[in-house]
Design a protein around this nucleic acid. Structure first.
Lengths: 222, 222
DNA sequence: CGATCGTGACGAACAATGTTCGCTCATGGC
DNA sequence: GCCATGAGCGAACATTGTTCGTCACGATCG
């Protein structure tokens, strides 16, 4: 439809297709129009080509999303200042931020052992920081597992909030009404603590500190 | 195709459609054939009806999956024995188990504030246990947030491992080869700790203990 | 006992998706 | 100047979620 067959020759020398170009285009669409707009046809359109052409450089949609995730993780920043705990917090915050910035990418990371070059770089850096903190090898690896899981989960949660239909205030108000209508005999704690439940506060920062303190205080008895 | 128009009257009095029947059928399919088999047509087929009929009782596929999740959470068991920490561990283990038993359901929970009747029951029980442990209201609510996030993430991870194509041993061996081939100068920690990284051990149990110890040792400075 | 009527059920259709199959044609080496 | 190579691409296919108009069943009313 609306073909208007412009000869490829006539086009202003467009950048040739490449895996990187596809990944970049995918991220652009994901950021601009959200996860449900990330279709193969839409990515191809962004590159002024057809969907079939993408499959030369990308195995399938999952492969593309995994590559996009690793590309995003390549933008995680490393700091050289502060104690190891401060640097770890900065690293985790940056990774969480990067994952939540692009809707849906965090879900790709959940439940697949990381193998991407940039994901592994993040893991390596985290391991180094934990070793600097004096942890033994076993504890350090288990801790990295746990923290990485926390990053992906936090990213997924954040990402969902960022893009959930209506602006989040309206949604929270709705949940609040729902909680308020609960029978107090069946949900005694929730009804009595409702106000605290939906209140603000820097839970993200507290949660990471919980992990760090817990890791330092929980021996691995294998 | 293969219509064989059996009059509905001739059929042995089939159970009438209902929201619960649809949810049960969905869980049966999810358990038997996995997430990608959970299509509206397939659920309808399980109930010997057409896909369109489901929409009387279910808003859309997301609504169905949310209902399935809550139904699954209804099977979480509560123990009355042991210290509050032991009971909390049992509760979390049961919830994680229930989420990971049904592929993909944990992802539904990620990034949506829980509102299902059974999900709230789990939260209420967790709050009670944490209060029993002596936590103040703010810490308890933040802790429940964190633990619930941990449950969903752990469930999603477990669920992915349970159903990831090939049997997981082959997959782990493949990842191991991948790690072994990494350049040691770029990934010094990973290459030197490769053995620990993919080794076993009860990381799940340790992770939860980390959360508990961390929660008990991390003050909320609001 | 028979006509009526509402409502749950359903077949068919629609728009959109991921993916594959061959054909086309520009390009680079002889 | 020609030809083979391979990237690019249109069209097609199988499926998906969802909606629409129709239909038959069973209860209700006369």
């Amino acid at each position: 439809m609306s073909a208007e067959p412009v000869s490829r020759r006539a086009r202003p020398a467009k950048a040739p297709l490449s895996r990187d170009a596809i990944i970049e285009a995918g991220l652009r669409i994901l950021d601009r129009d959200g996860l449900e707009a990330l279709t193969m046809r839409r990515v191809a359109q962004e590159l002024d080509t057809g969907a079939a052409s993408l499959y030369v450089y990308v195995k399938d949609r999952d492969d593309l999303m995994a590559a996009m995730l690793d590309e995003a993780l390549g933008r995680v920043g490393f700091t050289a200042e502060g104690t190891w705990q401060e640097r770890l917090r900065a690293l985790v915050d940056s990774a969480t931020e990067e994952m939540s910035r692009h809707e849906g990418l965090a879900l790709v990371a959940l439940g697949s052992i990381p193998t991407g070059a940039n994901a592994l770089l993040v893991l390596d850096r985290m391991l180094a920081l934990l070793k600097e903190g004096g942890l033994d090898d076993t504890t350090a690896t288990w801790a990295v597992d746990l923290i990485y899981l926390h990053i992906t989960a936090g990213g997924a949660e954040q990402s969902a909030y960022n893009t959930k239909g209506m602006e989040q205030n309206a949604h929270i108000a709705e949940v609040d009404r729902h909680y308020a209508a609960l029978p107090a005999d069946r949900y005694p704690m929730i009804t009595s603590m409702r106000e605290e439940l939906l209140s603000g506060g820097d839970r993200e920062r507290w949660g990471l500190q919980v992990l760090i303190n817990g890791i330092l205080n929980t021996p691995v008895h294998q």
